[in-house]
Computed example of a mutant assay.
Amino acid sequence: MSSNRRYPDTKLHEEIALAGYDWGGRAACIAAALRPDRCGGLASVNSYLIQDIAKAAIPVAPFVESGLWYQFYFLTERGRTGLTLSRREIAKTIWMRNSPIEISCGRTEFAAR
């Protein structure tokens, strides 16, 4: 679906199937979300999800956030904010995912899984 075309509003197309690859998939997802009554099907391949940009910079719980970590995560504003807000929980998450042994650190038990 081209970004400069309007969603079809003719009676010929009461429901349409949308498909897209990469950014076209994102456009198809957004079109389907905006007009679910007109979308008869959706195929989105190798694309991005619809995202709440305003909340994208707010870190979530470290255990959940760790699934999003990549090598430069802590160089991003989101990573710095998460580290500032949850330094101990991030350390615990990293330890639990990577340590082969169990230790006690203060009052919190850290155990490898």
Rank of each mutant, 00 (worst) to 15 (best):
residue 16 I to F: 11
residue 75 L to D: 15
residue 43 A to G: 02
residue 70 Y to C: 06
residue 92 K to D: 07
residue 83 L to A: 08
residue 12 L to S: 13
residue 60 V to D: 13
residue 69 W to I: 01
residue 66 S to N: 07
residue 50 I to W: 01
residue 92 K to Q: 12
residue 62 P to H: 03
residue 15 E to G: 05
residue 12 L to F: 04
residue 22 D to L: 01
residue 66 S to E: 07
residue 18 L to P: 08
residue 13 H to N: 10
residue 90 I to E: 05
residue 20 G to H: 04
residue 47 S to N: 14
residue 62 P to V: 00
residue 11 K to W: 03
residue 27 A to F: 04
residue 79 G to K: 10
residue 24 G to P: 03
residue 34 L to Q: 14
residue 89 E to K: 13
residue 51 Q to P: 00
residue 81 T to W: 02
residue 74 F to I: 05
residue 91 A to Y: 03
residue 85 L to E: 15
residue 90 I to F: 12
residue 51 Q to F: 02
residue 13 H to T: 04
residue 13 H to S: 06
residue 60 V to R: 14
residue 52 D to H: 12
residue 57 A to F: 05
residue 65 E to W: 02
residue 47 S to L: 02
residue 38 R to F: 01
residue 87 R to I: 03
residue 53 I to S: 11
residue 34 L to S: 12
residue 25 G to D: 09
residue 26 R to P: 00
residue 83 L to H: 05
residue 30 I to M: 10
residue 51 Q to N: 11
residue 73 Y to C: 08
residue 46 N to M: 09
residue 13 H to K: 04
residue 43 A to S: 03
residue 18 L to G: 08
residue 65 E to Y: 04
residue 41 G to N: 06
residue 33 A to Y: 10
residue 14 E to A: 10
residue 21 Y to M: 07
residue 85 L to M: 13
residue 79 G to L: 06
residue 53 I to C: 00
residue 74 F to H: 13
residue 74 F to C: 12
residue 16 I to S: 11
